[in-house]
Simulated scan of single mutants.
Amino acid sequence: MRNLTYFIATSLDGFIADPTGGYGDFLFEGDHMTAVFEEYPDTLPSQARHALGIDAPNKDFDTVLMGRATYQVPGGPPSPYRHLRQYVVSSRLSTTPPDVQVVSDPLATVRALKAEPGLGIWLCGGGRLAATLLPEIDELILKVHPIVLGKGIPLFAGDFPTARFAKASTRTFDTGVVFTTYAKEEVT
């Protein structure tokens, strides 16, 4: 069975974007970015992969799931992750390129995707979608940036059940960014 991984940048106070959905306060230079390029190239937008000369086969993910606001980031391309199967959760979005599928039931979609063979499924945002999918999230990879936003879009937004995760690994970079991986603990 495939895993759903919430791989996301967050501030020290738990926000994945500012109140307008912007993420310009996060660090985009430094040794932590080298780690992203080398270890998580599947999570780079197709334009960035092309600019960096990355055309290797996907190694961790073959599918990306995102909320409408994440998909419709201002200035973003209409097909941001052409190297992945792309799903956008929305009840309002109607026009997308043929390689971007709009779905309205994220839990049913993830459960069906998990039953298929393949690589992992990457949840790349947003906070409300993450809260909805929390029962299905198998792994969290948090890229914690050394900033405090004070307000914005939280890592998980809305009502959601309690879930426990066990720390699997932590890496600290010279930039001050810390990657921490958590695996879902099974309830006994």
Results as ranks from 00 to 15, higher is better:
residue 60 D to W: 11
residue 157 A to I: 03
residue 26 F to G: 06
residue 65 L to W: 01
residue 68 R to I: 10
residue 53 G to H: 05
residue 91 S to N: 11
residue 114 K to M: 10
residue 84 L to P: 06
residue 176 G to S: 07
residue 171 R to S: 04
residue 26 F to C: 13
residue 15 F to P: 13
residue 137 I to M: 09
residue 186 E to M: 01
residue 88 V to E: 03
residue 89 V to S: 06
residue 161 P to D: 01
residue 176 G to M: 06
residue 64 V to L: 00
residue 6 Y to W: 03
residue 47 Q to G: 15
residue 139 E to C: 10
residue 82 R to M: 15
residue 162 T to P: 01
residue 3 N to A: 11
residue 38 E to H: 01
residue 56 A to P: 00
residue 38 E to S: 02
residue 27 L to R: 14
residue 178 V to N: 05
residue 6 Y to S: 00
residue 183 A to I: 13
residue 147 I to Y: 04
residue 137 I to Q: 10
residue 41 P to W: 03
residue 118 G to T: 07
residue 2 R to T: 12
residue 74 P to E: 11
residue 41 P to G: 08
residue 67 G to A: 07
residue 73 V to C: 11
residue 117 P to L: 13
residue 102 V to E: 08
residue 105 D to C: 10
residue 187 V to F: 12
residue 27 L to P: 11
residue 154 P to F: 05
residue 120 G to W: 07
residue 103 V to L: 08
residue 9 A to L: 14
residue 78 P to N: 12
residue 90 S to C: 09
residue 53 G to M: 04
residue 96 T to Q: 11
residue 178 V to L: 04
residue 28 F to L: 07
residue 162 T to Q: 00
residue 59 K to A: 13
residue 49 R to E: 01
residue 21 G to C: 12
residue 113 L to A: 14
residue 131 A to N: 01
residue 182 Y to M: 05
residue 48 A to P: 03
residue 81 Y to R: 05
residue 92 R to D: 14
residue 99 D to R: 06
residue 131 A to R: 04
residue 55 D to F: 14
residue 148 V to I: 08
residue 126 G to I: 02
residue 70 T to V: 08
residue 48 A to S: 08
residue 2 R to W: 15
residue 136 E to K: 15
residue 65 L to Q: 01
residue 179 F to L: 09
residue 20 T to A: 06
residue 143 K to V: 08
residue 150 G to T: 08
residue 185 E to L: 03
residue 86 Q to R: 08
residue 170 T to L: 12
residue 74 P to W: 08
residue 180 T to L: 07
residue 23 Y to C: 13
residue 111 R to W: 02
residue 88 V to Y: 06
